[in-house]
Design a protein around this nucleic acid. Structure first.
Lengths: 206, 206
DNA sequence: GAATCCGAATACCGATTAGTATCCATATAC
DNA sequence: GTATATGGATACTAATCGGTATTCGGATTC
């Protein structure tokens, strides 16, 4: 009686379960340390299901990466593309969103997998390539959405501002994971304020 | 004729070789992925030498951490404790030192192991504890050495400024490893400038 | 110079891993 | 209702790992 699902539905449901289970195990054990058996068990399935849905471990890693990082990157893009809001509002919203994804979900889950993927990609060219298309989509911008006009950050080429902000993002995620007592999630908005506050202009009043 | 070394000298020399070999293998394979066999082989020894010099893998990891991170932290402390230099000079020197350790040595070696240790410590409480004593020694400061008076950074509690700078440090190391084409090492001094430049003061002229 | 000691080499163990091959249950097609 | 195709379970392999037990060779000691 349980089996009221069509074959396709079963398959896609199992695939999703595997993706979410893999994400959880990746966060707990690291990608290297995650065994396909544990992923399958976490999903309530067996390794057969893994190899039925993915060509191997690398493909599973890629799929999880797209499933989670892609979703998060999209959320950030959506948040930043409210181009009509003043930049200061965007900075505030972005800071809050960051803190939420630092502690939300399943206990640091997003922060852990984000760091894991970056480190893992460092040693796996295939993963690296796809991760870069996620992190640095080929869009040229005239000004970084988080750099309010008049801030020192806005004086940089937007690609440099982007790299700095992404560095602070992933770095604070890692440090918050390692030592939340020294680097609480609330510190990110503070740092963002520093970078986006109006610069001391060299021509005081015009 | 090769054996002109006393027993103690042999031992300490082998121990050092193992430490440096381990550092290299950790950087190449990651700490999890590094096998003791490969570490020993890299040192021109065998696993017996490893277990003769270290209680196990965890002890080896700890020893490498102290050997390298301790040395680097000391170098930074030495650099920052030239308390007589103006803060701007310190910022400049620190930025240059950073770029040097991002590309120096054996091809990103320091950056790789620094990231590796932090990620590894995230899941190994023993490692974490010792790493925290390295990263956050119990010294209270009245002002962060890299926060010039008058900069926005100097308005923060020095512990917060420290956490922000450390986040940027490790984050940019990771991003530079992953995508040097988008995040070149020269970007760190730029980011440092942003954080340490004079703030736009709210009382323009007094 | 023989006896001893010790650091490292060697051989081995149980556990675990990614990947494969096979089998089975059942949704689907006719 | 029967045959078939397919998705997932099961069983297995070869390789690799950390760790241990034992052995070996040369430095140390007397």
């Amino acid at each position: 009686m349980v089996e009221r699902l069509t074959r396709q539905e079963q398959r896609t449901r199992n695939r999703l379960r595997l993706l979410e289970a893999a994400e959880k195990v990746f966060a707990e054990r690291g990608i290297q340390g995650a065994s396909l058996d544990e992923v399958a068990a976490e999903a309530g399935l067996t390794k057969g299901a893994v190899y039925s849905n993915f060509a191997g471990k690398e493909e599973l890693v890629l799929a999880v990466m797209w499933h989670r990082l892609g979703e998060e990157e999209q959320a950030q893009a959506d948040l930043l593309m409210c181009a009509d809001r003043p930049a200061d509002d965007l900075v505030k919203m972005y800071g809050e969103h960051w803190a939420a994804t630092a502690r939300g979900g399943d206990q640091d889950l997003y922060a852990r997998v984000a760091v894991e993927f970056m480190v893992y990609a460092t040693r796996h060219p295939g993963i690296r390539e796809e991760l870069l298309t996620l992190l640095f989509p080929p869009t040229e911008m005239r000004r970084h959405p988080l750099a309010p006009p008049g801030s020192a950050l806005a004086d940089l080429p937007p690609e440099q501002a982007d790299a700095i902000l992404k560095s602070l993002d992933i770095g604070m995620r890692l440090l918050t994971l390692l030592a939340p007592e020294h680097c609480p999630p609330e510190l990110f908005p503070t740092a963002l304020d520093l970078l986006t506050s109006p610069k001391a202009d060299s021509s005081p009043e015009g």
